[in-house]
Design a protein around this nucleic acid. Sequence first.
RNA 1: GGCGCGGUGGCCGAGGAGUUAGGCAGCGGUCUGCAAAACCGCUUACACGGGUGCGAAUCCCGUCCGUGCCUCCA
Length: 471
Amino acid sequence: MKLHNTLTKKIDDFLPLKAQQARLYSCGPTVYDHIHIGNLSSFIVADTLRRVLAASGFEPRHVMNFTDVDDKTIARSRERYPDVPPMEALRRLTAEYSRIFLDDMRAVGNDVAAITFVKATDNIEAMRQLITKLHADGFAYVTDDGVYFSIEAYRRSGKTYGQLTEITAQSTSEARIQNDEYDKASVHDFALWKAWRAGEPAWEFELAGKNLKGRPGWHVECSVMSSGQLGQPFDIHTGGIDLIFPHHENEIAQSTAGQTDPLYAKYFVHNEHLLVDGKKMSKSLGNFYTLKDVQAKGFDPLAFRLLVLQAHYRSQAHFSWENLAAAQNRLNDLRALAALRWQPREVAHDSGTEALRDIPQQLTDILANDLDTPEALAFLSRVATQLLAVHIEKDMVDHFEAMLQGIDELLGLELMKVGDITAAQKELIAGREAARARQDWAESDRLRDKLAKQGVGLRDHPHGVIWFPQS
RNA sequence: GGCGCGGUGGCCGAGGAGUUAGGCAGCGGUCUGCAAAACCGCUUACACGGGUGCGAAUCCCGUCCGUGCCUCCA
């Protein structure tokens, strides 16, 4: 298995730290609103990575967090529930959007059962402990508005701040320097803990004899939850490229300050952004979509998954309705392939069952090359074209189903969910065949139209009619 | 200003020095009761200018254009 590692800026062989384990941490959603399809694309990549690791013989352990306390969740919860205590308002809001998030995840084929989810608010004690330790070791300082991490102290200890991306004086924008309104010693220093402000939820915290009631900073949440669940160092950390700086740099700094082992995570895998109309999604540009919008236009969420997988994760994919329609057509084609398992040919014809059995392995090999999903789909399309031309015979069904199962495990396309048609629909098909036999074309076409309305398309072949799901 | 990534046929999108990517759409044809599918053919792709190669879409330099990070944004 090869993966592009932001730490080395190269495609590296994946060599796990412990035996065959693949410990994977993905920065999860901030649960204050519906996530957008760009967020979702990131999670589709992480899900696919876990699938490919598993197929490549590793034992993945995949952890994802819910950021359920931060500026946005707090602001939104106060708007939505102005009359309940802040902590309860926060809990209600984040519970609601966590649930919606999981629904979206499942809809696009991400296997949430394979992920261990952790909530920031369930890990406050561990955060307090880490901050206390950082403070005791001289890497954190207390100010009026919270506790900050000192990058200067980190650098003095001999470690590098900026392992993922170069950080220099010139690379710091004027805007950042000018907007440096907080009580920090240096521009890059970041909050580990934020002091309480009226109306906000808060947790008790005593540090160096001072009462520091407040809440954790964003970066410390991920540091604590990743190592708490996976140990440190762990194998792979994933996220969108926008998280490289400052989020992941800060995680590395916090987690390795004062540690003898300078490694936080061995591999950092970052996915590029999904562009809409050639631009990054943003509310102000009006190119901001959620999965609800995709569904409202009649598209299958799995068509969106296919759209994401059609592009390599390190390139900017383009979302457009036209592009999504193409992906939907491709999905329909794959479903037509899957439907063959309910209608095998009686006639034996000598097509190799061995070939079918090898397909998941061939897909795995392609995907193990830095998650080459576009090539994998191209391969799959060639397979589909070939099989749809010859169909499958009765004694190949087991192998065929094993192949579909393997494809689903790798790509999450849920082809095994393509069910059989009803007995009534089978009768309609038989009735049409009878009508055709007596050359009653009007009746034949009527039955075909009726089936089409029920989502069943037909193709007449020399060796018989086959049906396929039609959306 | 600093650090990246990219510009491929009507659209989308891989690949990446000589060999058909793939998807979507269009046109012509074969087949078919009709359709769908399939198959065959066509629409002669790699931003521009230089350079290095026997050979460049693929490497190098430059230009233009797009895009991202440098703001708690996946």
